[in-house]
Design a protein around this nucleic acid. Sequence first.
RNA 1: GCGGCUCUGGUGAAGUGGUUAACACGUCGGAUUGUGGCUCCGAUAUGCGUGGGUUCGAUUCCCACGAGUCGCCCCA
Length: 419
Amino acid sequence: MLTNAPRGTKDILPEQAGGWLWLEDKIRELCKLYGYEEIRTPTFEHTELFQRGIGEGTDVVDKEMYTFTDRGDRSITLRPENTASVVRAYLQNKLYAKGLVKLFYIGSMFRYDRPQAGRLREFHQFGVEALGEKNPAVDAEIILLAWEFLKSFGLDDLTLKINTVGCPACRPIYRRKLKEYFTEEIDELCDDCKRRLDKNPMRILDCKIDGLKDFMDDAPKIETCLCDDCREHFNRVKEFLTAAGVEFVIDNRLVRGLDYYTKTAFEIQYAPLGAQSAVAGGGRYDGLIKEIGGDDTPAVGFAAGLERILLALELQNRLPATNKKIAAFVVSSGMAAEVYAFKLLTDLRLENISAAMDFGKKSLKAQMKQAAKSGAKFALIVGEDEVATSTVTVKNLETSAQEKVPVEEVSSMLSQKNS
RNA sequence: GCGGCUCUGGUGAAGUGGUUAACACGUCGGAUUGUGGCUCCGAUAUGCGUGGGUUCGAUUCCCACGAGUCGCCCCA
């Protein structure tokens, strides 16, 4: 118990940390390229923010949130996603005064789900939000950013799916039509879909069981219900994406799970991940900002799961090897030499030369083994002789060549040979 | 939240209802005097996820719980 992290959480160990840092660097680089700035919001928020933002009735809000009452009797929730927080920060800090605001975030999110590979209770997302612009070119920019990001790793088997989910003017019409249609087929529906019929008939469309059945082919398509605004918007998005040369698939069964989405919806899948194949997903959420208490403001964004990206990168061996090697390893024999060695170690670091020594008071031989294992290019050997003559024996561990040099020359010698 | 499968040392794993739980890697130590990488030698689970039960006896059988994994659900 004490030695087990809570279910669904994971330690990122030194050997993995390199990959995370590398990924995060890539993200920051990319966002800079697209003109998005980093924002960091609190890990927890008032529960109401998510209830309003994500929507009651969604699984995320109803059964997956980490909610608790704090000592001041406030209902607090660990963020299950970051969009609502970003919108809150946007309003609270009056960022709308600046016109279009382009933000990105990296951070951990919390969802009480049953853990699986690629699905954790504390997981990490990278996401991008563009607030304050309704131009479909921004939808395209966001999709492009997500797509080019994943493509840049050389991953095969990526699929970009796009769809439109309409807006408050036209979506209800579509939902009603779907409900009517599926009600006639109710005997054919699986149990889950019978439940969805009332709650969210659009979800029936991407059901893994019923999705394959015959009556699905004749199910009403959203195109037939779209209002002019939504239709035009979707057409423009497609135009922009085509102009950018992106291959996308129109999937009119693609639905988003959170209530706030309007118009454009998209998802990038990496099939080899199995059940957790959605690597990034997002879309437009023109209603959210008003819902949270701001002016009617359009916005688009997406989020990507870092664990899933890392999983995909591992699968295709796309993670760079991290270099943990140091420049020098100090080895000593004898009490006096140990102090001398420690001083040498400290001086090297002051000269910005990475160095280590063994603290286990082992034999010289054992220390040399440590030196070799550390990957250091040089072993710096000090014993009675060196102490007496103020020198250091510098041994190149690759060539085995060694020479005795005055202490004060060691650092300049290493920085020279190391470059 | 539902269903299937799995659970042996630091790691990968073999194995059996009954006295010493293979093997490999790793780690540590050694192969004479202050020097590594190769080789050789030695050490390294009184323990087989946890807790119960069956049994003369369980790591091996049963149950519960836990964790992992796959699928569903959900989603990134």
